[in-house]
Design a protein around this nucleic acid. Structure first.
Length: 219
DNA sequence: CCAGACGTTGTT
DNA sequence: GTCTGG
DNA sequence: CCAGACGTTGTT
DNA sequence: GTCTGG
């Protein structure tokens, strides 16, 4: 799955790769957790924008915004039908940028890994967002879509985030793309894209937030 | 008809 | 909001 | 995802 | 064990 990731690339790199205009101040983060604001690329006006949205999708019809707490991920296999996700899947698709993400291999102790592009560069997760309004204001929130693990990820975990190819960004964000074509995109990326490395268990604690969290350790 | 759910992950 | 269960 | 809490009363 | 917070 994807419950923790990092994003520290300069805003200029994000704007270039995703052809979007940043409308929020972005700070380097090496330990991004659900329930925090995360940068999201989505359609806005004539072009694409980068905005901060709460990680954990709160359905627009939800009475309790706490519902978002368990919506950090959405299964790609079922987004088309789940009540919480099918509306956003039709209308509110987004891309969530990352420099890498973390997965924990089961065992004692659990061993965290950092997964990055083998050739370096930014990843774009397939995501969904929604707009929620409550008595005390409005919240735009988002979720990261998951799929089965590819060969590279399988030794660590049976799920992984959907990582879009840059040539698929436009298709994913285009409101006119048919659902069948969208579902074609929700597949595990090729093994060769990814590079995995074990990292310090310090990443488990969300209070730790420094570049060393992404650094490979021995073993 | 109304009431209640609406989700994923990992682990057992 | 929309579906499922009763 | 993991880490950490898991409670109430009265008083300031 | 299970929920909340980050």
């Amino acid at each position: 799955m994807c419950g923790r990731y990092a994003l520290s690339s300069p805003v200029e790199s994000l704007e270039a790769q995703f052809e979007a205009e940043a409308r929020a101040l972005l700070t380097p983060r090496y330990n991004i957790a659900p329930t925090t604001p995360v940068p999201v690329v989505r359609n806005g006006g004539p072009g694409r924008v980068i905005v901060l949205q709460h990680w954990g999708l709160i359905p627009s019809w939800s009475k309790d915004p706490a519902m978002g707490a368990r919506m950090a991920n959405a299964r790609g296999e079922t987004v088309v039908e789940k009540p919480s996700f099918r509306g956003p899947f039709r209308r509110n698709r987004c891309i969530i940028p990352a420099d890498g993400f973390y997965e924990w291999r089961a065992g004692t102790p659990k061993q965290p890994f950092c997964i990055r592009l083998a050739g370096g560069g930014l990843l774009g997760f397939a995501g969904l967002w929604d707009h929620w309004e409550g008595p005390d204001g409005a919240v735009d929130s988002c979720t990261i879509i998951t799929t089965s693990a590819n060969g590279a990820m399988a030794p660590i975990h049976d799920r992984m985030p959907v990582i879009l190819a840059p040539e698929d960004y436009a298709r994913w964000l285009d409101p006119a793309t048919p659902a069948e074509a969208l579902r074609e995109l929700l597949r595990p990326c090729p093994d060769a894209w990814l590079q995995l490395a074990p990292v310090s268990t310090r990443v488990g604690n969300v209070r730790n937030d420094d570049p060393d969290l992404m650094e490979p350790i021995d073993g």
